[in-house]
Amino acid sequence: MKLIIAIIQPEKLEEVRQALIDCDISRVTVSRVTGHGQQQDIDLYRGQEITPDLLPKTRIEVAVNDAFVEPAIDAIIQSARDSESGKIGDGKIFVLPMEQCIRIRTGERGGEAV
């Protein structure tokens, strides 16, 4: 079992969700976060250009069984990448080992609960 955390551009959320659903991953947690990598963004306030230190991003968490890890990664890459070649700021995917997974309602554990 793995926990996949992806940081993506907020406007790509719809596409990424759809891509995940298409490969049978329908359980996701989404949160709004801010952060920075290499990308820079420029906002305009009263004619002044302002470069924010922290940019709004969207964080997606998906818990998957081992067989689903690669399809999920591919789906996220394809849907979150801006155009063919990609752009700075498209985001990152982290894959973490997951020790245990428990469904609160039934108490099921492990792969069944994912």
């Binding site: 907020p10 406007e11 801010t34 420029i42 305009l44 922290l54």
Partner: peptide
Amino acid sequence: VQGEMAGMDHDQHGEHGYGLLNLN
């Protein structure tokens, strides 16, 4: 389509309505 997904605020005006989501 890109503009619609990014939202009119960012795409058309270069601003954000609420500062709370963005910690700057």
